[in-house]
Design a protein around this nucleic acid. Structure first.
Lengths: 328, 328
DNA sequence: TTGTACGCGTTATCAT
DNA sequence: ATGATAACGCGTACAA
């Protein structure tokens, strides 16, 4: 900026006026300065700008696993919305490790991000509520935290809906493959709640919990479930990846899907409609979710008021080929 | 920092010594200052640090589409390697739009990133070589640019290998579905080169180029190809997404894969081994690619010497169920 | 071993 | 309409 000022024969302040379109300047000097700017290709330094303005136009997004099919589209949605407002995205991967998550948060704060979108956190509630006091953030979770803004994934409602759908088809012996890392039950609770609404008993041996979301784990969990409760006629799963594994397990056991047993997922990842049988699942719009999260955060940032708002995403049941009426 | 100094009764310089582990300080004051730091939860401001040091410990990664299955793992690999060195990642999505790409580059430069990883660029060679003069960057491409460091995707070699594989199986009427956005031929050239090596004529009607990578486009392109050259016994594709669409097209035409016609892809995305028939394809290690790219960039940054190095990724042919000998 | 003072590139306050 | 100058938070040469 000094160089521009020198070369244009004006003060630094005047250059600043041109760069920031501050008016209060004659059209003549304006054009002259702009000419010099283009000539020496001056680009404003966001660091210096952020240092004094207290805003960096950057936000952090922390996700457990970028390679989880849920997140690429989510991130794309968030980035797109952020870009409209001139914001950049700092992406952080935690690999489900709380320590790494914490260290990422510290780094982001050191980098003076204006806000953080925290997806599928593994931190404890006290940690989070303490954090939320000093850090503008939006959580993406199945929970309904009261200390921070959040975009809720309707896990409980979704699984509940799918269980009702299966019961409508005539199933009564319905199982569930859950995921430990959901901080509390959510989807698992939706499963039990739906059964209870119809007066069906929740049989613990029809429930298997796995600690990692992968096709392999889904397969292993389903095999275990089929051992524990061989008369199961339908398996609901925490998400699509586990469901795909569950289908493989059923086929390995000689069970036909959906002839002998029905399987359902959650998320509607691209894979879900490409495998055979096509997977019945719950769809949530991941791009829209990212949009919403960024929206909430930007509002928070610009208004400054902590909007302890929670917005629950829409979802819909997508019936496909992996479900049918039970055999008998 | 001033607060810490005040509270600890020392100078700012001394606090700085503690924060940066600069020695030259008595263990006594060291501990005292550290105590105060923890107490008021002081966190260094990376903006100020970067302003004076000229380093931000941030790098930008620009990709065409995060939702393209190639990139999540690539990014994860790059981020993992960067994290080891204390670097953060600014992620930018271009949606294949050169204008947006350019604007992202400017933003990243304004944010004073220490370097940029540019994937699948749509910019012109002159633009790129001009850029490379003032910006530390690593490109990820099928090309072999001489003006910048690059991680090469072995597109030409990969397709060549797969064509040879098909010819070894007895195929002679082999087609190809290409992608416009590859700046020049690469994979398409590998296709023609391999045919020529065996003295087979390259029949233009067996080649269809599409302008977007998606299953739908793969299907449409394959239908067109089958119309133009119905006697084709094998179709090679620019990548797995297009190949999956091609398989759907064949099935729609009543052709069995691989009984009547073979289909091959490129990338080995997770989908490739989950669809039926499992897809024969070329595997490149995306995580390793991200690692390599970040490695190259960090070397560039720390040594300062512009390493116009090109490193070509390993690849391997993964024969699966979508290929077989031709019918006759 | 410790402290002072300057400068990084920008915005903001107050004169002129 | 324009300019001089103080901040922002930190690293660093230099002095003590």
């Amino acid at each position: 900026m000094k160089d521009v000022a020198l070369k244009a024969g004006v003060s630094i302040r005047t250059v600043s006026r041109v760069v920031n379109n501050l008016g209060e300047i004659s059209e003549e000097t304006r054009q002259h300065v702009q000419h010099v700017i283009d000539e020496i290709k001056y680009r404003p330094n966001h660091l210096a700008r952020g240092l004094i303005s207290g805003r960096t136009l950057s936000v952090g997004i922390i996700v457990p696993q970028i390679s989880d099919p849920f997140f690429p589209e989510f991130i794309q949605g968030a980035e797109a919305r952020g870009q409209e407002a001139g914001y950049s995205v700092l992406l952080c991967n935690t690999n489900e490790d709380p320590a790494r998550e914490l260290s990422h948060i510290e780094t982001l704060q050191s980098k003076q991000v204006d806000g953080i979108i925290l997806c599928g956190t593994r931190l404890s509630t006290p940690q989070l509520s303490a954090l939320a006091e000093h850090q503008k953030m939006v959580m993406v979770t199945g929970q309904t935290p009261d200390y921070a803004a959040a975009v809720r994934i309707p896990g409980e409602e979704g699984i509940s809906k799918v269980v009702h759908y299966l019961m409508d088809l005539g199933h009564t012996r319905i199982g569930h493959i859950g995921f430990t890392k959901q901080v509390t039950g959510e989807r698992l609770e939706g499963y039990f709640a739906a059964l209870e609404e119809r007066g069906l008993p929740g049989n613990p041996s029809r429930t298997v919990i796995t600690d990692q979301v992968s096709i392999e784990n889904g397969k292993a969990a389903a095999l275990k479930l089929l051992d524990q409760a061989p008369d199961t006629t339908a398996i609901t799963c925490y998400n699509d990846m586990l469901a795909i594994g569950a289908i493989q397990a059923c086929e390995e056991r000689g069970l036909r899907v959906p002839g002998d047993i029905s399987v359902t997922g959650f998320d509607d990842i691209p894979l879900a409609s490409l495998i055979r049988p096509r997977l019945t699942t719950i769809r949530v719009d991941r791009f829209a979710a990212g949009n919403r999260a960024m929206d909430l955060l930007l509002n928070f940032i610009t208004t400054g008021s902590p909007p302890v708002k929670r917005t629950t995403l829409d979802f819909s049941l997508v019936p496909r080929e992996s479900t049918g009426s039970p055999a008998e």
